[in-house]
Amino acid sequence: MPHHGFASSIARAFCALLLVVAAALASGCAGMQAAAAPQLVMEEFMVPAGDPGIQLYVRNKHEAGRSSYSGDRILLFVHGATYPAETAFDLQLNGMSWMDYIARHGYDVYLVDVRGYGKSTRPPEMDQPADRNEPFARTASAVKDVGAAVDFIRQRRNAAKINLLGWSWGTSIMGWYTAQNNDKVHKLVLYAPQWIRNTASLTDTGAKLGAYRSVSMASAKQRWLTGVPADKQADLIPPGWFEAWANATIASDPAASRQDPPMLRAPNGVVLDGREYWGAGKALYDPGQIRVPTFLAHAEWDADLPSYMLHAYFAKLSNAPYKRYVEIGEGTHTVIMEKNRMQLFQSVQQFLDERLAPAQ
């Protein structure tokens, strides 16, 4: 019996020791996780566009307690033709946005809404019926808006060059800007690149164009799933993600969101450019003038800007120091908010982080 009691005491002591070690390991792992996911700070600015009365909404995310970044660690997002930047690039899905992801990799990350979108100045034409005015916010003016945001960021961080990332129409904005301002751009990322069109547009109904168009979330969902095989639609967008995006996007336009059903207004300048240029076989600019490393990202079910545009654009990048593209399987034009979004995030992050030079 004494031996049995002694053995029990040893066993209890050993178990207690294991609990202490397990607790220490758990604490250490939690500390490592905290270190791997730094706290982020969000700041907001209204930046003059250069045209009288136009202010641009710029959002910034960076690590708490840090204010110094080199230009190769700074990135600016711009949105596409219909929706504002913040409900795409800084939408919390499963606890994280794309802005968060890049900022947690040690970057100073910005987004901008061009005039007429999101929290930027909405011109007086948007307070009137759409058919009373001509389309506005064409690509040329959007390039000017991006230029104002780039110069604001460069001055704020004392950086000569920064990275640019555009989605959809935003690829034309960023591509055209870079072609004119290679000296201000470190690397260029074009997600779903726009180029000469030989198929029908999903955003242009062919009707007479007013100053802006109104978009319902039901039509947005239909457009989103265009081209997705019927048996793949159910699990493409994780539960609640579309609703989170739709609610945030509708809320970004308080005036139109009060309609029944709620709507979102989007300037028609981009649609007019589509008719007069991309849909008419004419390019707005020459990608051959881009002289910075360039990365193209695309998804196989993108019916808005199909794969043939990606391939044609890639061939035009004749003067980039190096170029690359990735095609993501089982994704649409909006793969940024779908089950395979991490393939997009990780491939873009690798391009941003790498330090390559020809003939190394």
Rank of each mutant, 00 (worst) to 15 (best):
S216C: 02
F351M: 06
Q55R: 15
L164E: 06
F351I: 03
E44A: 12
L352E: 09
V58D: 06
T139V: 08
S172T: 15
F295E: 05
V150G: 01
Y308I: 01
A312R: 12
D253Y: 09
T249V: 10
H62K: 14
E86H: 13
A246R: 01
R73C: 05
S70N: 10
R154Q: 12
Q39R: 11
Q180T: 03
K221S: 12
T294S: 12
A297N: 03
M99E: 03
Q222Y: 11
G95M: 09
G80H: 06
M32C: 14
G329T: 11
D253E: 08
N340W: 08
G80K: 00
R122W: 06
N158F: 12
G31N: 10
Q360N: 12
V146T: 11
E134P: 04
Y322D: 05
D204P: 09
A220L: 13
D235E: 11
G331T: 01
H62Y: 03
T139Q: 10
I196T: 08
A24E: 08
A297V: 09
I250C: 03
L19T: 08
M174A: 15
N181L: 06
V47K: 09
F295M: 09
A88H: 13
L75A: 06
A218N: 06
Y69G: 11
P129R: 07
L317Y: 12
A244I: 00
R132P: 00
M174S: 15
R12L: 00
W98Y: 15
A283P: 03
A244W: 05
I153H: 07
V215Q: 13
T249D: 13
T294I: 06
L19G: 03
K208C: 02
A24Q: 08
Q259G: 07
G116P: 02
V271D: 02
M99Y: 06
D253A: 04
I290E: 04
Y285H: 10
R265N: 14
I162E: 10
A256P: 04
D260N: 14
T178H: 05
P261L: 09
P267L: 07
D286H: 08
H311L: 15
Y110N: 07
I250T: 13
P293F: 01
S27P: 02
D90K: 11
P321T: 04
D127A: 12
S201Y: 03
A130P: 00
V114C: 14
I153P: 01
Q349S: 14
M99G: 03
A200K: 13
F345E: 05
W245Q: 07
A256M: 12
P124S: 07
L284W: 11
R59P: 04
A30G: 14
E276P: 04
I173F: 01
R104W: 04
R154A: 14
A255C: 01
G95E: 10
Y83G: 02
E327M: 14
T334Q: 10
A283K: 07
G116Y: 10
K61Q: 14
G106T: 07
S9V: 09
L310I: 08
T203F: 13
V112Q: 02
I237G: 01
E338H: 04
K187M: 03
G170P: 00
M96F: 00
A103K: 07
Q350T: 14
M309N: 11
V20R: 00
R341V: 01
I250P: 01
S214Q: 12
T171I: 02
L164D: 08
T82I: 11
Y325Q: 09
Q39V: 08
K119H: 13
